[in-house]
Structures are given as C-alpha cells and as structure tokens.
Design a binder for these strands. Structure first.
Length: 1003
RNA sequence: GCGGGUAUGGUGAAAUUGGUAGACACGCCAGACUUAGGAUCUGGUGCCGCAAGGUGUGAAGGUUCGAGUCCUUUUACCCGCACCA
C-alpha cells in the first residue's frame, strides 16, 4: 500500500469539517487555551507559502494543547475592510463587497487544503454588518467616556458632567485638549446645550477636532502616523503633507503610560516591546515658561534638561508656532515671513531627508530668563518640530549637539550670543551631551550639582516662581480616526448644528450605503458624499434619503469611515462569542476565555495594530467590558519567507538606426568570460582596429559591429537582469526551459531571442528577495499540496528553520520531508497492507520513541518546531533500522506526530484501529487521544561513550559504565594504550573527570 | 545618531545552556537495483593533506582543564525609531 497524501488528506479534511472536530465549547471542565493568528486581509493575489507559516505553527500548538487536555480556541477570520478592494472598485466599478467575498472564498479554499484545525463556526469578517455593528458600538462607548487621571482609568462621561454641574472644571484632572478654559458650576449650568457639547468634545476619548493631520493627496485621505513610512504613505508611496482638518481622533495619549507599563507584564519579544516603547516615546523633564519682553506672551518649552537652565543661550520656535507672527519685530518681519513660507512649501519628506542643512531666522524678539532675567534672543528654525512638545525649545548649545551646531552656524550674526558653558567640561570642539560626568558651574544655586540633583532643584525653583513644573512628555500622538474612504465602517454619527450626535445602540448597525462611484465627490467630499440615502431620521430612527434633510428631525450623517485598524482592535474578543447579536461577546464568554494565550503574526504590526488593540482592550477593561488589562499574553512574530527570484541576463541592446531591429541576446549566469570577450572586441573596434571575429556571440554582435563601423560608440559592460517566472525554470538545477520561456505570455518580446549557453545549458541566476507577484518568485501552497500533500508542506515549512527567522523558500529541499513521510508510512505498511505487530518492542525501540516524546514536548513548549521535525526523522530512521513494526511504539508515535502532520497521523491511527473511514460512528479521532507521556526509565543508560581529551582536544572515545567513580575512570583511562600513546611518556599535570560528560587530561 | 537582532560547511540549519562543533535535511560524489523516473536502497561528504596530522563557529583579545556558548573590543548585514528638545 502506497502513501497517497491527496486521497487521505481530502478524506480527513472532509471528516473534520463534517464532524466539527475542532469546534471549541464555551463551557468545559478543561482548562482553556486560546491560540490566535493575526487574521489576514483577503487580497486578490491569494496565499503564497509565506502566509501559512505562522498558521502552521499555531495549529501545531493548538493540536498539541488539545492532546494535552485543554479546551482550545483556535479561530480564524478576515480583516476584510481595506484599500485594495476599494481601489479595484474605483477602477472597475465592481462593488468591494463582491471582490472581498470572492477573495475570501479563494483564501478559504487554500487554507482548507492545509488542514488547519480552525474552529470555522466562529469565523468573523470585519466588513460584515453583524460584526461592524459592534465596532460602531465601541466607538460610541469611546465617545461616551473620558479619562480621569485621578482614578487612572476611563469613566463614563456622565461622571464628568456631574462634576461640571457641581464644581465646574477646576478640580477635574483629565486627559483632555490643551488650553481648556476654566469654568465654575454656575458657568456650566448657564452654558447652552451646544456650548456644553463643544466643551465635552475636549474631554471625550474619541473627539471631533480641527487638528493637523497627515493628508495624502495621492490617496485622497488622511493617514495615521503608523501608516506613513519615511514621509510617504505606506500604501502606494505617495507624498504626505500636513494639513488642518476637522477629523475624529482617538485619545490614545491618555493610555500612553499604561501602554508603556503594560509591556512589562507580557511575554513579547524585546524588539517588539522596544518598538512600542520607542513609539510611545516617554521623556521625563519639565515645562518652563519664558516671558517675552515687551509682549504679554509666554513661550512654553519642554525640556529633558532643566538642570541646564543657566546655559540657555537662545530659543528656537518651530516656523509653524503660533507666536511667530505675534512677536516678530518689524525689521525681521520680511525675513521671517519668507522663511516660514519656504518651510511650509517643503514636504515632510524633504524636511526629513535634509537634516544636515542648518537654517533659521532671528525674530528680533527677546525672552526673559526666568532666574537671571537676562534677555534671550528668540529664533525660528525648522529643526524644531511643531508636533513635538510645545514646538519650541530652550537652546542650550553647550549640552545639545543641534543647538551647538545652530549657535555656531549663526555665530557673529545679530541675535546670536556667545555660547554659555555651564559645565566644567571643554566644549570648544563639540557639545557635552552626557547626563553624567560633569558638575554644573556658572549656574547660581545649581553650582556643583550633576544631572539628577540639578534637575530636581531646578524644577523646585521653577515651581516656586511659578515659571515651570515637572512634566512627562510622550511622543505618542492621538490617532486620527477618520478616513475619506468608502470601504470601511461608517460612523454611527449624525450632525445637528454641526455637532456630532451618536445613534442609539438599538439602531445599529448603520449599514454602509450604496454609492454610484467610489471616488470622492466633485466638491471634495469623501466617497460617502455620493450616497443618496444617507441622512438620519431622528424620529423614525432610520437612514433616509438626503433630500429629506431639514435639520429639524432629519440630519446629515457622517461622511467619513473608520480606519483599517478599527475592526482589528477588538476581533479576538468576537471569536469568544461570534454569534452574539446583542453584545460583542457575552460576559460569560469573556470571563471564560479571558485573553489570548498565544498570538502569532507579523512584526509589521508592531506599532499599528498591536498598539491600537492594546489601547481598545484597556479602554474596554476600564468600562467593564473586557476581562483583562492586556489582550495578548504571549506573542511570536513569524519571520518572513523569502522568495528565490530567478534571473536571465540580457545584453544591452544596441540602438540601431531604424533600418533593422536589434535582437535580444541572453547570457547564462556565469557569463563573465563571454562578456569579457565581447568587451574586448568592442574596445578594439572602437580603437579603429578591424578584428575578425567568429560568430559565436550571435547576431547582436553582428549588429553591433555594423554600428561600430559607422561611428564612435561607447558600450557599457553590464547586462540587464530580468526576473523570470519560476515556472520557466528547473528549481533544482536552475536550468532555464528556453521553450517555456519563449512561449510564456510575459516574455513575448523575447520570442526570437538568442541564448548563449554554458555547457549546453542556460543557467539562471538566483537571488533571495521578498516573495511578490511582481518578482515572479511566488510559490503557491496549493501546488505544493497537490504534488506532495499538506503534511509535507506543513513539515517542510517548520523544518526550514526557527519560526521567528526570515528564511528563503527553496522547493528543492522538500523531497527530504516527503521521503521521510513515505518512510514513516512504510513502518506501518508494505505493498500488501498493514505490517503492524503486537510483539513487545525492544528497549532500543522504546528509547527511540521516548527520546522523541521528550524532545517534541519540549520543542512545542519552546516553539522550536524545526528541531521537532529533525527528531521525527531521527526516530523514523532508527525505527526503520530496528525494523520496528510494533503497535506499542507506532501508536504513540502517530499521536506525537499528529500536531505536525495531522492527516497521515489520523490515517495511521484509523488503520491501527482497523476501522474504515465510512460510517465511523464509534471512531474516536486521534485529536482526542492524550499526548504520550515521556517516561525517563527508557532513557536510562548504563554506559557512556566518553570523549577523552588531551589539553582540551578530543583524541578518542571510550565506552565506560556510568556507575564508575572518577577515580575508577582515571585508572581505566590511564591504563588504556591509546592514553599511553598520547602521553608519550609524560605524566599529566591534571586529570579532569566529569562523570557522564567528559575526560580531559592536561599535560 | 539611538534601540533591537543576526553572523556556524556549497545551502537551510543543530548543539542537552560551558563538555565529542556541524545533528537532521538539501546538494554533491561513489555504488546497488531497475520497466531509465525528479523511484528506492547503501556508503561517503567542513576545510587543507596521499596519510599521519593540522585547522575550523564574522574578526581580535580575555576568563577556563575545556568557549559557537561567558567577558571586553570590533566588523558586516537586517529590522525599528530618528533634527523627539
């Protein structure tokens, strides 16, 4: 009987699906275990072999935990709102919902082929109305909440209103907008309802405000900070500019400290935590106020070095700073305005690219030092960022590299004083930036102090004169939550007098309306501006035609949609109770499943999804809707699987004056000889020497020769490397199938190309690159499944290397794993059927099995999946050598293998039980079997093959009983003739004997 | 610039945590069988050397009887952040 993966895999996939083998229950005596994959965006390209890597790992853990007696939740779903479907809709008019559904069914087909133990009954799709109605509900909760710094958590907005009614806002300690005007309770009660609403927006956890946003004209939408990479949009690479717009924002900054501290309690990789710490960007320092001379204005600055306050030499404002226009003197006005104008014109990207150029202008104004009352010139410069701190700095050139450079650049110009040095250090060459190793001088009451003491004293003194206070600053900005897109969650919001109103929970979902066109409207409204039925009837409580808007009972609805991260910021909780219509999940389900025990996904979500998800989770926890402070206890980033791109090398075609076309010539990989020859000939020709050449370089050369005779031609000695579709090559020998290449639709231009071979073959070059359609290096898991089976794919992906590491895919290596499965199969069957016996296995067989149980158990607990596969191979090799066909070994072996290769394991299990798959009423699947327990008694050895070293170098080994004392061992070793030969008459100075480990003789 | 990570044969990688470096595979070499298949099986394979032997985990130093593993210095590459005050 032959191993036929296609047949058994299809059977078992069907059986598991029909029997709901992997459905989790929400009430169980068993302990729970929640294994989650980051759910995919269903793109049109389908899966390549890189996508399932993490899913396979999590599936192994899920199956293993089931064997170990856990009630395992292992769900899967789709992050199905997103840009590609929308862009496809813009181009084709195809509704994104249709595209998305088609993509999902293809994804599902591909996933099913790999045999995952997902509980598909809990599938979620973020673009389904029964899902996003809860996303809308969470949004409303955020709107109805504020962050109380006193209780250090989010509270209902009602508690804030009560406080306003009783005491006004003077005692409120909230995370809110800057520059809040204070009011008393009587003020509050006297405000109109609209005024009250406007004030509350400054406090709500999601709020509508005019803010500087990242506007991406290329995409026609705003973007969050994490959606911008190197100054351009992450998607499409379009430029991004700063623009003031009224947008929804999320007050994530309220959670900055908790998001930071929470990292200490979760088991994530250090690099991921560092990314988040970096992104949150906590810095501790002080706010200092500088009065502007002759103005009733104050410049507030944030500094991490209040101890250097006496070193302030000048001040710099960001060009966008509000005060710039107010304080600039008449003489400086023109220069300042032209500088501000020039800065505004530069894109974010230009400003970032150009960090070395120092530029700035003196405003003509002076600030006053809080202690010395000396006057300090105020400059503007684009090295100061409007978005960080207060957009202004106190420049201390002696202690800051940038201030130092700025001061020196403008040294001697009007408005730039001599650098003040307040360190007992030399700063003639460069600034002294360290926080230790100095004493402050020329610093009045701070003299003699270092950083720590100086900072403390400085803050105390500033507080005393009411010119500053200690302050912690975070880089983390509030997240813009509006997108000018169609394919996203609509806001459950309508507007009365321009003020946002929430739609009641019972009317959710507010479904995405149909539109004619998916582009923004002609007057620049978001795509939902195209919807004709998009108004809210506050009496009937339904969405009605826009024409009915009277702003009395029928009002316009919000035209923006939510960003991509909205739906993914809570989805792991939906899986706990995926069909609950009332709530996003029941309290019981949430209490049972708690949070995710193991989360596997890509590291690209470090500062996006993973930060927002933690934020929403903490918020929901505060409001009593989520059970734990952190959503993901342990997180592993699977490494990227890279593609092995193939290349052909085309000679640069020589442009021939229109009479005949140049032909394409391709050189094989090791073509340097040919190329040199070519080059030599060209050089000689150019020098005017007529060289007779043979024809081996092809017609390209003949054309070139012809051209050369006419005039001077300089010839660049490089070939163009062109990506070749992997279908055109032999993956093992790297030989190009020239016929396939010529007939491939992609390469019609090269139909008549010539190929210069080496050893009769055309060899393509190979290079490791990211797997991508455009590089033609994509390997499709379906094809691997069809050819070798899903078990082989699963084992091979794990065998490739450590899960977290990036590694290239090489299909050639897969035969090793396939051969291994065939070998495993042959332990159970020969050509005629089962060869399993009930004989008692030998000690060696038990040893091999139990070594494997031990190793695989440890490996799964440590997420070291590649070494398990090696161990399976070792075990099967050993058992084959031992001719082991013993049930007592082969039954447990099937279970140990089943997390990795579930189909073959289940098939072997079934056949060991001598059943047939049809009518398996009493069949108890392998997934219900307990995992074999490692018993150390089978591994006990009585002897050890000792390595015998001389001066640390291993010379020979020696088999000795393990119960010998070191002294006995020494006697035996010293008497051994090989020892005597090695020592050559010398007596060793020292003999080191570690029983069970090593023998080392030092001479 | 700051932070994190990686470095071992022709290739992917192991190494019980300080104890025989290169397990397990791919590839390659030799052989067996064969209905000549990209099947199956056996043996070999870090490098130099006919061999004895030497040498070897990015580089240099150190600790140790013993270092891929620990310490110091350093180089290259990858990832994240970056005029963050």
């Amino acid at each position: 009987m032959k191993y036929n993966p296609n047949e058994i895999e299809a059977n078992w996939q069907q059986y598991w699906s029909e029997n709901q083998t992997f459905a989790a229950t929400n009430n169980s005596e068993k302990p729970k275990y929640y294994v989650l994959d980051m759910f995919p965006y269903p793109s049109g390209a389908g899966l390549h072999v890189g996508h399932p890597l993490g899913y396979i790992a999590s599936d192994i853990v899920a199956r293993y935990k089931r064997h170990k007696g856990f009630n395992v939740l292992h769900p899967q779903g789709y992050d199905s709102f997103g840009l590609p479907a929308e862009q496809y809709a813009i181009q084709t008019g195809q509704h994104p919902d249709k595209t998305t559904k088609e993509n999902i069914s293809r994804y599902r087909e591909q996933l099913d082929k790999i045999g995952f133990s997902f509980d598909w009954s809990r599938e979620v799709r973020t673009s389904n109305a029964d899902y996003y109605k809860h996303t809308q509900w969470i949004f409303i909760q955020l709107f109805e909440s504020w962050y109380n710094n006193n209780s250090n958590k989010a509270e209902s907005i009602c508690t804030l209103i009560q406080e306003f009614e009783k005491n006004g806002n003077t005692n409120v300690n909230a995370v809110c907008d800057d520059n809040i005007v204070s009011f008393s309770s009587s003020d509050w009660n006297a405000f109109s309802s609209d005024e009250q609403q406007k004030i509350l927006l400054h406090y709500r956890l999601t709020y509508l405000a005019e803010t500087e946003v990242n506007w991406c004209p290329g995409l026609g939408t705003v973007l969050a900070n994490d959606e911008i990479v190197n100054g351009v949009s992450e998607r499409g690479g379009h430029p991004v500019i700063r623009k003031k717009m009224t947008q929804w924002s999320m007050r994530i900054s309220a959670y900055a400290e908790r998001l930071l501290q929470g990292l200490n309690d979760i088991d994530w990789t250090e690099s991921l935590k560092e990314s988040q710490r970096n992104w949150i960007g906590k810095s501790v320092g002080a706010m200092v106020s500088f009065n502007v001379k002759n103005h009733d204005e104050v410049i507030d600055v944030f500094t991490t070095r209040p101890d250097t306050i006496f070193g302030v030499t000048f001040m710099t404002l960001a060009p966008e700073h509000d005060l710039v226009a107010k304080i600039t003197t008449a003489e400086q006005k023109e220069a300042i305005e032209s500088y501000v104008h020039a800065t505004a014109k530069r894109s974010e990207r230009e400003r970032m690219a150009d960090v070395k150029t120092i530029s700035g202008v003196f405003t003509g104004a002076y600030a006053e030092h809080p202690f010395t009352k000396e006057q300090i010139p105020v400059w503007i410069g684009d090295y100061v960022l409007a978005g960080y701190g207060t957009g202004a700095v106190m420049a201390v050139p002696c202690g800051d590299e940038r201030d130092y450079a700025f001061a020196n650049f403008f040294k001697g110009t009007n408005g730039m004083p001599e650098i003040k040095n307040i360190f007992d250090q030399d700063i003639s060459e460069e600034a002294f930036g360290a926080k230790e190793g100095f004493k402050l001088v020329d610093s009045d009451f701070l003299n003699g102090l270092g950083y720590k003491e100086g900072t403390k004293k400085a803050i105390e003194a500033l507080e005393k004169i009411n010119q500053g206070k200690g302050k912690t600053n975070y880089r983390l900005r509030d997240a813009v939550f509006s997108r000018q897109r169609y394919w996203g969650e609509p806001f459950p919001v309508y507007y009365v007098n321009g003020l946002p109103q929430m739609i009641d929970k019972k009317h959710l979902p507010i479904a995405l309306p149909e539109v004619e066109k998916y582009l923004p409207t002609e007057d620049g409204q978001p795509p939902l501006g195209n919807a004709t039925i998009w108004a809210w009837d506050s009496v009937q409580c339904s969405v009605v035609s826009n024409q009915l808007i009277d702003n009395k009972t029928i009002f316009p609805l919000e035209l923006n949609t939510m960003p991509g991260w909205a739906g993914s910021s809570w989805y792991w909780m939906r899986y706990m109770d995926a069909h609950n219509e009332e709530d996003f999940a029941s309290k019981e389900a949430l209490d049972y499943w708690q949070n995710v025990d193991l989360y596997i996904g890509g590291s690209e979500h470090a500062t996006g999804h993973l930060l927002y998800a933690r934020f929403w989770n903490k918020f929901l926890k505060d409001r009593g809707f989520a059970p734990t402070e952190e959503p993901f206890k342990k997180l592993i980033n699977q490494g990227m699987i890279l593609g092995m791109s193939a290349f052909v090398y085309r000679l640069p075609s020589v442009s021939i004056s229109d009479k005949s076309k140049s032909r394409n010539v391709f050189l094989s990989k090791n073509h340097s000889d040919v190329l040199m020859k070519f080059k030599n000939i060209v050089d000689l020709q150019v020098q005017g020497k007529n060289v007779e050449v043979d024809n081996e370089l092809g017609s390209q050369f003949l054309l070139l020769k012809e051209e050369l005779t006419k005039k001077d031609v300089t010839f660049d000695l490089v070939t163009n490397a062109i990506h070749v579709d992997l279908l055109c090559i032999n993956d093992i020998t790297n030989e190009l199938d020239i016929e396939k290449f010529k007939n491939h639709p992609l390469y019609v231009d090269y139909k008549d190309a010539e190929f210069i071979l080496e050893d009769g073959k055309y060899i393509v070059g190979r290079e490791v690159e990211k797997m991508s359609k455009s590089k033609y290096n994509v390997v499709n898991p379906d094809e691997i499944c069809n050819e070798y089976g899903a078990d082989t794919l699963r084992l091979y992906e794990m065998f490739l290397g450590p899960l977290e590491q990036a590694k290239p895919w090489n299909t050639a290596g897969i035969t090793g794993v396939f051969g291994f499965l065939k070998k495993l199969w042959r332990l159970y069957f020969d050509d005629n059927g089962s060869i399993v016996t009930n004989d008692e296995p030998t000690a060696e067989m038990y040893k091999s099995l139990h070594k494997t149980i031990k190793k695989v158990t440890e490996d799964i607990e440590n997420f070291s999946f590649n070494t398990s596969v090696s161990q399976f191979m070792i075990c099967v090799n050993e058992l084959a050598t031992l001719k082991c066909h013993h049930r007592a070994i082969l039954e447990p072996l099937a279970i140990v293998m089943s997390p990795y290769a579930p189909h073959i394991a289940e098939e072997l299990w079934l056949r060991l039980k001598d059943s047939k798959i049809e009518g398996l009423k009493d069949y108890k699947g392998i997934s219900e079997q307990p995992f074999p327990i490692f018993d150390p008694k089978y591994l006990i050895e009585s002897e050890k093959e000792y390595p015998v070293s001389f001066n640390g170098k291993m010379r020979f080994t020696m088999k000795l009983p393990l119960d010998l004392s070191p002294k006995q061992i020494e006697e035996i070793v010293m008497a051994d003739e090989r020892t005597i030969a090695q020592l050559a008459g010398n007596t060793p100075k020292k003999v080191i004997i570690i029983p069970g480990k090593i023998i080392n003789l030092v001479g």
